[in-house]
Design a protein around this nucleic acid. Structure first.
Lengths: 335, 335
DNA sequence: CACCGTAACACAAACGTTTGTGCACGGCCC
DNA sequence: GGGCCGTGCACAAACGTTTGTGTTACGGTG
């Protein structure tokens, strides 16, 4: 049971409020130097730390923010978290991490819990399009910023230009001479997937190649789902010569089935991923991918959040980074 | 500004304590069915959620635990986090995540902050041998459990048998015929590194091969450090025919320099990693490694922590999992 | 009819802070 | 010597709960 203000006050022979003021360096405090010295000595001696709970209750501020993501196990989201933690620490904040596994129900349940805890703000990386959770956040008047994905364009958001990313990847394949380019799309309920697909379509159109619906397969974000999608593509009468995957894990899954089938990459099939997560540069062959800066996502979103906390007004700032194509050995001219 | 107990009480025409008791389903509460109905309707209508801060202050319990790890970006620690979050959620707990980057200072600073917040418990995955933070945790009387690494053997701990893991990896290489087996050791300040190295030495001894100090190079846990260590090994007059790395990232780094030098794996050099993180199975060649169950680490440690919270007594339970060798294509007989 | 038990609540203190205001005392000025 | 001002604190309310202990009214009992 740690020391309390009252106990310190009793030992110092002063009123608790006095202790409080020296702890908080109240600028309006007029105090005798010797009294202050006595109190400070006592504080140091007892290693007194104010009870954050009581403090929060009084101040109506918890100095805690939460980040909600689909899954930390995904390096993209882990990076985002690092970014927000970085800036949160400099402000004396701690951060609660919530994984949703892309389940709306879990997201909603986390939200209620975070509300009950009165977190000062939320950074949401798991938003789906028209996500009911963001409506709830507004209703609860919890400051928040969307990151990586957005639910609609009215809210503060930081991410990257996914349309441009999709275009980048697809244009790269087109420039290599590919015409039958497949797309391993993610869930169309999330903005990133939707936009990358749009970028894909735009690039095709711009190159004058007619998109083939059969070449667009809705998969998911995991190795497993990427692999299954790839299998469906290979079953086609005219399989693609290249595939653009919605993320690196799906690409890795696809790559795996290609290798198992004895197909050569990029000779038989070129492949490009998205995110540039660790180790994809060491795949066989090293994966061409679109790089985004997850840590900066986190930092920027945290900064916007704190801005909101300071001004007390919801912002609708949008900061979008430009993705970067990193060309490795998984792409080449069609054989 | 959310509804408070008092407001509800006023609107329901009862005393706040009554509302509190129905919210908390106080078993000793005798209440008129109609009053209860009225209150429950009001609760539902206003979506009232008790202020967790006030609750925590009164109950002296925050229902928050913290997980302290070196870096979430490492899938091992991400997995541990998922494990603890899983079980924490079922108990109505949220979890704060803290990254230390293996910096004692950051660890200590996090600890003070967590103490000020009065978290109910801590799960520490970043402990070094004789870690001062562990001493501090005891001093602060914060229930905690060590995971993956330990600081000394007196405290609750969950992890795996790293000596066995080191033996497993080394014995595998020995059985393939290797005699000059190098070890990319991590920091000898952390138990995992120390123990894996011990396992390595034990296996050598058991096989009757004299360990060569030149073949043991202290590196670190990153790709970069693994790469540099590998370079030093290759500069030796008699380089090793196999290397056992303290973790997968170091192994990947080592693998990269081997490939760049035009050496064939496993023909020229065999390599084995540790942890079996995602994608190492898709490296070129797929990495032989020692698998540990990070999520179960997290779950088990959380369960021990909650056990301590319930009984109110510090435990010194140790649960250790047996690591598993998974043999892939990065290991083979010496060429 | 006095008494008691019980149902159905109300009361108030406490958790550990923060902060606006109040107050006593001493010194200075005129 | 009275008034005034500044210094150095003390006082108390408030933040939103929880919970042990009253308190009231009513119905039943002997």
């Amino acid at each position: 049971m740690p020391v309390t203000l009252k106990e310190l006050a009793a030992r110092a022979g002063v009123h608790p409020s006095t202790i409080s003021r020296v702890v908080n360096r109240d600028p309006g405090l007029r105090i005798a130097p010797e009294t202050r010295a006595r109190i400070e000595a006592l504080i140091a001696e007892t290693r007194y730390r104010p009870n954050g709970i009581a403090r929060s209750l009084k101040l109506r501020q918890t100095f805690v923010v939460a980040v909600i993501i689909p899954d930390v196990t995904n390096p993209l989201f882990a990076g985002i978290f690092r970014g927000v933690e970085d800036v949160a620490l400099t402000r004396g904040y701690n951060v609660i991490l919530c994984n949703t596994d892309n389940l709306h129900e879990r997201e909603a349940s986390h939200l209620e819990s975070l509300h009950a805890r009165r977190v000062d703000g939320v950074i949401l990386a798991s938003a789906t399009l028209a996500d009911p959770s963001v409506a709830r956040l507004r209703q609860l008047r919890i400051p928040f910023v969307l990151v990586n994905r957005y639910s609609d364009t009215r809210h503060a958001f930081v991410g990257s230009d996914d349309v441009a990313g999709g275009r980048l990847a697809t244009a790269h394949l087109l420039s290599l001479g590919h015409r039958r380019i497949a797309h391993l799309a993610g869930s169309q309920k999330v903005s990133t997937s939707l936009l990358r697909r749009r970028g894909y379509l735009e690039a095709l159109e711009q190159a004058g190649v007619e998109p083939d619906p059969a070449l667009i397969v809705d998969g998911g974000f995991t190795e497993d789902l990427g692999a299954r999608a790839m299998e469906r593509l290979l079953a086609l009468s005219r399989p693609p010569t290249a595939v653009f995957a919605v993320n690196d894990m799906a690409a890795a899954g696809a790559q795996d089935v290609l290798v198992r089938r004895g197909l050569r990459i990029p000779k038989d099939v070129s492949i490009v991923g998205y995110n540039d997560v660790p180790l994809v540069s060491r795949l066989h062959p090293p994966l061409t991918t679109v790089r985004v800066p997850p840590v900066r996502f986190g930092q920027a979103s945290a900064e916007i959040l704190f801005e909101q906390l300071e001004t007390g007004t919801a912002s609708s700032r949008r900061v979008v980074f430009q993705p970067e194509l990193v060309i490795r050995a998984s792409t080449g001219p069609p054989g």
